[in-house]
């Protein structure tokens, strides 16, 4: 475990806590894409199939349980909580994510470390995580304005994958046979998707104006 990866896990955890805080405190999920949250829940459920079989460390096991539980809690809130579900922008959150799920699954069948159930689902979760933010970015573009908490949520989420890429570079140079091509390439694509958001976020911070995404 190196500092970059630990920082990446922490920014990832913070992004989820920001979202839970926003939903719990404001009892509203306006501006949040349910589809992105469902994709993240699917990412964690398919990635941590080895939760009970491969014990790596207490830290890993605890974090996996926290990620699965929190992502399911967010989806449950947005679908079932009587107050929260009313504020869901149903007609703005129209990204057809089922095609993305299908494409990632087909890709995982073709490109994986080993053709086993666990490895195919692991690769699937890696590809899916790279594009899971798309419905959220589309929703932000549609709704135009980005409220602070949602903006910070996306910012921390982007920082997490960016830190993971630094972690992979670090491990590549410090460990002999370290290669994670699938995760690296997919992580680069994922961080690239955030790049334009980061740009507008930086502009809004620099010019001290409300974050506006070009429609």
């Amino acid at each position: 475990m190196n500092i970059f990866r630990f920082a990446g896990d922490m920014t990832h955890l913070i992004s989820i806590l920001i979202l839970l805080l926003k939903i719990y405190a404001t009892k509203s999920c306006a501006g949040i894409s349910l589809k992105t949250q469902e994709l993240y829940a699917l990412v964690f459920l398919t990635r941590y199939l080895d939760l009970f079989t491969d014990y790596v460390s207490l830290y890993n096991t605890v974090m996996k349980i926290v990620f699965i539980a929190s992502s399911l809690a967010i989806v449950w809130c947005m679908r079932r909580h009587p107050l929260v579900r009313r504020s869901y922008d149903k007609d703005l959150d129209t990204f057809r994510h089922q095609y993305v799920v299908l494409a990632c699954f087909v890709l995982a069948l073709l490109l994986n470390e080993k053709f086993t159930i666990q490895e195919v689902f692991w690769a699937f979760s890696i590809y899916l995580e790279a594009v899971a933010i798309l419905p959220q970015l589309v929703l932000l573009q549609r709704s135009g304005n980005v409220d602070n908490l949602t903006g910070q949520y996306v910012l921390f989420l982007g920082a997490y994958r960016g830190l993971y890429i630094i972690n992979w570079i670090y491990r590549y140079f410090t460990e002999d046979h370290f290669t994670r091509w699938i995760a690296c390439v997919s992580g680069l694509v994922q961080t690239g998707l955030y790049a334009d958001f980061f740009y507008y976020y930086y502009l809004s911070w620099k010019t001290n104006t409300k974050l506006k995404l070009p429609a």
Partner: peptide, 10 residues
């Protein structure tokens, strides 16, 4: 034994 490829990251 073959190098047990475990995913040690999250």
């Amino acid at each position: 034994h073959d190098e047990h490829h475990e995913h040690d990251e999250l």
